[in-house]
C-alpha cells in the first residue's frame, strides 16, 4: 500500500487541493477538541499533583515541574494521539470505507487514477503537520495547569514558573516530537488501510472504524514504549 501511495502521482493541480482539504479536515478540524481537552486535562494534572504533594518538605516548584514533564513527555504526544486515533482515525476509515462501499474507489480506478496516491497520500502529507497540533496541545495544557494552580491557590505564579523552567532538557522536546511524528504516520496509514481494504456494507464501515481505532491505539502504545526505551533509557 505504501509503495503504491508514493507511485504514479496525481496531477499537481488536483493533488494540492486534496492536501489543503485534508489539512482542513484532519488538522484544523481537530484544533477545537485538542484545545478543549488539553486545557482542562492540563488543569486537572496540575491540581492533582498539587493535592498529592501537599507537604511542607516538598518544594513549591514541584507542581509546575511535574505538570510540564507529564504534559510534554506523555499527555500531549501520546494521549492526544490516542484521542486522535478515535477522531481522525475513525474519520479516515469511515470516509474511505464509505467510498469503497458506494463504489467511488472503483469509479476512480476505472478512470485510471492511482487511488492509493489520490486518497492516501494527501492524508499522509496533511498529518506531517500533526506536530503543530501537539505543540498547541502542550502550550494549552501547561496554560491550563498554570491557571488552575494559580487561580485555585494551589501554587504561586513564581513557584509554578520556577517549576516550568527547572532542569529543562531540550532533548525531551526532540523526543516528544520524534514520537509525535511516528504517531502521525500511524494515524495516517493504519486507518487508511482499514478503510481502503474494507469489504461489505454500511454496518462493516462502523466495524472497520472500531477495528482501526483499536489497532491504531495499540500501535501508538507499542511505538511509544519502543521509542521511550530507545531514546530515554
Amino acid at each position: 500500500m505504501i509503495q503504491k501511495t508514493f507511485g504514479k502521482f496525481t496531477k499537481w493541480g488536483v493533488l494540492k487541493n486534496l492536501i489543503v482539504r485534508e489539512i482542513d479536515d484532519l488538522i484544523i478540524g481537530s484544533l477545537g477538541i485538542v484545545a478543549f481537552i488539553s486545557f482542562f486535562v492540563g488543569g486537572v494534572v496540575a491540581i492533582q499533583t498539587a493535592i498529592n504533594t501537599d507537604n511542607p518538605l516538598l518544594p513549591g516548584y514541584l507542581v509546575g515541574f511535574a505538570t510540564r514533564q507529564s504534559i510534554i513527555l506523555e499527555f500531549a504526544p501520546t494521549f492526544i494521539s490516542i484521542i486522535m486515533a478515535g477522531k481522525v482515525g475513525s474519520f479516515i476509515t469511515s470516509s474511505l470505507g464509505t467510498m469503497r462501499v458506494t463504489e467511488q474507489i472503483d469509479a476512480l480506478e476505472v478512470m485510471g487514477i492511482n487511488t492509493y496516491n489520490y486518497l492516501i497520500f494527501p492524508k499522509i502529507i496533511a498529518l506531517t503537520l500533526y506536530p503543530f497540533l501537539i505543540s498547541f496541545s502542550m502550550a494549552l495544557g501547561i496554560l491550563g495547569g498554570y491557571l488552575a494552580c494559580v487561580s485555585g491557590g494551589f501554587s504561586s505564579h513564581a513557584d509554578f514558573v520556577d517549576g516550568l523552567q527547572l532542569d529543562f532538557r531540550s532533548f525531551h522536546i526532540v523526543y516528544a516530537f520524534i514520537k509525535t511524528f511516528l504517531f502521525a504516520m500511524l494515524l495516517a496509514t493504519i486507518p487508511s488501510y482499514h478503510g481502503y481494504f474494507m469489504k461489505g456494507g454500511a454496518l462493516d464501515v462502523g466495524k472497520a472504524s472500531t477495528t482501526s481505532f483499536v489497532w491504531t491505539s495499540v500501535a501508538i502504545i507499542i511505538t511509544n514504549s519502543i521509542v521511550t526505551n530507545l531514546l530515554l533509557t
Binding site: 496525481t10 496531477k11 493541480g13 488536483v14 482539504r21 464509505t98 467510498m99 458506494t102 463504489e103 467511488q104 472503483d106 469509479a107 476505472v110 478512470m111 485510471g112 487514477i113
Partner: peptide, 28 residues
C-alpha cells in the same frame, strides 16, 4: 477511453454535480 456508470452512481460526495462531471477532464 472508458466511461462507467455504476449501480449506485458512485458520485463523489464531496463534489457538487458540476465538479463531478468535470472531474475526468480536470484529471486527464
Amino acid at each position: 477511453e472508458i466511461g462507467m456508470v455504476f449501480q449506485g452512481s458512485a458520485l463523489f460526495d464531496s463534489m457538487n454535480v458540476e465538479e463531478n462531471i468535470m472531474f475526468p477532464m480536470r484529471m486527464f
